[in-house]
Every structure is written in C-alpha cells, then in structure tokens.
Nucleic acid binder design. Structure first.
Lengths: 277, 277
DNA sequence: TATAATACTGACTAACCGGTCATATGTCAA
DNA sequence: TTGACATATGACCGGTTAGTCAGTATTATA
C-alpha cells in the first residue's frame, strides 16, 4: 500500500513548508509516484492531513491515557507523564511542527473539530492525573489551573524540541517540571479557572446555546445559593426563560443585579448572550 | 489614507482564515475598494502582513519594556506585567490570533526574522524583570526556566482570550499568576535551561557556525575547568580546530570523552556538528 | 498463454492566485 | 472651462493549484 509512504513523505514536507504551501505534486514527486496514484489512496488533500492527525493523535493520547490509568505509585506518575510527552515530541518532531503550524487552521471544519476533540481528551487525562496525585489535599479549587499550567509547561518546553535540533536531557527536564508542578499544586491558593468557567468553555458554541442547557446551569446555581437579591433575580430570569413576560429594561436590570457577584457572573454572561443584550 | 482601512479589514480576515488562505481580492471586497487600489497602499501582500506585525509588536514590546524599566516597587511590577499582557491580548485579540496561527510560518524569510527579533526582545524584558524581582536570591540558576514558565503561563491563559469570546477578570488572573510565579521563583531548585543551552539556542543557525564562534565558547569553557581527561580532550580538540591533524577516529573518541559530562556536553554537541560526525 | 482485474500514469481542466496597467473618474488651481 | 494631477478601477496575465480521466502497465487467475 502506498498510503504509508505518502503519509511519511507528506509529513516531512508539511513540517518544512506548512500544509497549504505544499502541493500534491510535490508530495507525489517526493514519493516517486504520479499524481493520479495519490488520489487512489486519498480522496483529497484534506483527507490526507486528517488521517495524519488521527494516526499520531490516537497513538499519543492513548499512550498518555494508559500511563495515567495504570500508574501504581503516585509520585512517579508525573515524572513518567512528562517523560513520555517529551519523548514523543522528540521522536515525532516533524508531526509536532505540523501541529503547531496548523493549529486552529481553517482549511477544514472537520480539522478544527478533530483537534478540539483530542485537546479535550488530553485535558481529561491530565485532570484525572492531577486528581490522582493531589486528590486528598485541597487541590479541588485549583485543579483546573494546574491543568493549564501543566499544558503551559508542555507547550513552552516542547518548542525546544521542535525548533532547535538539540539533543536534550529528558530526565533532567522531567525532574525539573515535576518539582515545578508539585510546588504549584501544594502551595497555590488563588484559583483563576473556576468550574463555572470550564462549563462556559465547554459549551459547543456561544451562539447556539439551547434554552435547556442554560436552564440546567441555572437550576444548579439556584439550588446552591442562599436567599438574596441575586437568587431572586435568577429565579425571575428562569421564569422569563420558560415564558417571555418582562421587557428588555427589566431583563437588563436583573442581569445587572447578578453581573458583579462572583458566584453568578458566568450565568449572567450566558443569559446576556442568550437574550442578545 | 486607505492604509488604515485595509489593515483593519485584513487583520479580521487573517485572524479568521490565516494569511495564505486570504486573497487580496477578499480583502479589497471587504474594504469596498478595487484590487488596484490595494497596490497603491502596499507594494505586495507580504508588505501588508509585515506592516501589521510591526505596528502591533512595536507597540506591545515597547509597552512592556517601559513597564519593566520604570517600575519602582518590585512586588507590584509582576502584577502590572501580567495585567498589561492580557489587557493587550483582550483588546487586540484578532492580531493575537494571527500571531499564533502564523508563528514560524515560512511564507517569507523577512517574517521569520522579524518574529524572532520581537521574541528575543520580549525574552530580554522578561529576563530583566526576573532579575529585578528576585535578583538578590539564588534565582541566578533558575532564571531562564522562570522566563520559560512565565511565557508558558502567558501562552496558555491568553488562549482563553483568543478562542473564546468570554469576558475575563484580569485582576484575578494577574493575581493568580503572580502567586504562581513567586512560588516557582522562590522554591525551584532543579534548573533545566542552563546558560550553555541558551547560548546554543541563540546561535544564528547550527549549520553555519563559524570556527571563531566555537573557539570563543571553547576557550571560555577550558578556563573554567579543572585538570581532567575532559579538559585535556577539549584542548586537543581546540588544536584540531586551529589545524586539522587527527583522523576521524581520534576526533570521535575525544568527543565521546566529553559527551556525558554535564559541563561539556553542549560543547561536544557544537563540535560534533562542526566536524560533521 | 489468454483474459480479467488491478495499479498506475500524466496530460488536462477549471478555478484561483498575486500582481499589472491602460483607462476612467474626481479634484482643484488657473 | 480647461488642463494637470492624484486616485481608483477591473479586465487581464502568467503561473500554480486540486482534482479528473482516458489510457497504459502490471499482476493475478484460469
């Protein structure tokens, strides 16, 4: 099968020149085959990049997921995690370059959905690792921030592998990042990324929120709140969601009531975009 | 002048679709002008993107540089730094998207040089801030790692501004990151990014290293070393650099002597690529 | 060896690209 | 009103692109 060959050569070229700047002609010349032969293996150029992404990301995410699920000794897990990540980046640096270059590219709607999917998969693995490692502490509040920090470390340090062909000491790097992660996990007290924010981010798209989704969040929030002007406002807004009764002015006022309250500011944002204020 | 208009509309389109996927036609249609009019304001499409990059990056880097230089109270500086960064990202999120999308793109040699230049400028500002903030402590060894971590925080958290149109609490975010940075600065003990590594990275390109540049690093290293097999090997290699006398086998052996020594592993790497081993 | 099935080729198409230029329109001083 | 000058237009050019398809070569089967 020519598929394997085409994918390998294409990865080389995409890494060097980027996806759009590489023509099918170039790829086939690199493979020593004709242009027609390319279209026997792939329906289109887009299908090629999608298959490349899938091939590596499935491997990558499942490797990390396996690591996190089957780890026995907690402390060592984090080290193994970092080591595996950077080892992969080093071994498949060409693919890594593509990933960074074409990140959130618009050449194909499927591509964005795919990348979002794998990103979420990765997030889940990291989150479950964080809960495993620091679960008994008070990590609950800062765990999402921790996930962000870990991903920040990954993205910055992996650039070393991708943009410079320098042999790096993976052991030292992993040890160094383990220490940093532990420091943050055990001493951070100011969370930024709250559960509410995560929920907002995970909404499919802010434009097409369904009434039901908002109601779900709304009810959840109302139950957790004490009696107050804010709670009363929320209940009125819930009523408005079920059946429009108030005018714009009243709605705007109710939203203003809950806008600056830390517990309800996210809901105010959701409702704001739903009512098109 | 149409220049302003063209730049604004182009930024919108580049942010959405990327530079290469956006045609001049599309830009002019968005502006409501003809294709010819575009070329009255810009010599080429490449000149347009270069001007856009310059316009924002000069503003951005100089703002940060001013902040770092003119800060009086140390503690507050870090907060102001983060706040300014994310405030900029929030205000100019379209430009931020372009920056992320086209990072290290190959469409134009000038572009890569430009981006590298601004990146270095940013690095310098951050480094000088780190030295200012934690200078009296033992931050010397981990300062480069700290720069990396700060940049990691920046890149991860700024994605929130770029990919989700969510209003975020800049004050809380800055406070949270200040705490994290302080934790790392005051408690990290395992550096990964050494001065030697930074030197290797700052080499213009590993392919065209001049003999003189290597000799400079070599002499520097030899002076700092105690008498040992490694030092002896370095001196022999220095001799070889001046005048080729040994065969490949001897050179390979000498390189092997210094490859696993932490102090000389970088030099071994430089020499290795110079002698084409 | 003859036939059928499969794998492969490369000239071709239609579309689009960045960039040009003869031409047209608008503007203001004489 | 005239004419000189700046500004704007869009058809056009050479080049490149992804994708097609009628025809050829190779292999498997009988």
């Amino acid at each position: 099968m020519k598929k394997q060959l085409i994918m390998e050569k294409a990865i080389e070229l995409f890494a060097k020149q980027g996806f759009e700047a590489t023509s099918v002609q170039q790829i086939t010349e690199h493979c020593g085959i004709s242009k027609g032969a390319f279209y026997l293996s792939f329906k289109s150029k887009d299908e090629l990049i999608i298959e490349i992404i899938d091939h590596f990301m499935i491997q990558f995410t499942s490797e990390i997921d396996y690591l996190v699920r089957n780890a026995k000794d907690g402390e060592n897990l984090l080290y193994k995690f970092y080591y595996a990540i950077f080892d992969s980046f080093q071994k498949h640096s060409d693919f890594g370059k593509i990933l960074i270059k074409e990140q959130s590219r618009s050449f194909n709607e499927d591509f964005i959905v795919k990348m979002r999917y794998y990103d979420r998969l990765m997030d889940k693995s990291i989150l479950s690792m964080v809960e495993r490692l620091y679960g008994d502490n008070k990590v609950e509040e800062i765990k999402y921030d921790l996930v962000f920090c870990i991903k920040g470390f990954m993205s910055m340090y992996s650039q070393l592998f991708l943009f410079y062909n320098v042999p790096l000491d993976l052991d030292l790097l992993s040890t160094s990042l383990v220490e940093k992660t532990n420091l943050l996990a055990r001493n951070s007290t100011v969370p930024f990324i709250s559960k509410a924010l995560i929920q907002v981010l995970e909404e499919p798209a802010l434009e097409d929120l369904t009434k039901e989704q908002i109601l779900l969040t709304l009810n959840q929030e109302i139950e957790e709140m004490e009696e107050s002007v804010e709670k009363e406002s929320l209940e009125l807004l819930k009523q408005q969601l079920h059946e429009p009764t108030f005018g714009r002015a009243i709605i705007k006022g109710l939203l203003e009531n809950i806008r600056n309250h830390p517990q309800t500011k996210w809901i105010s944002y959701l409702l704001d975009s739903f009512f098109n204020m």
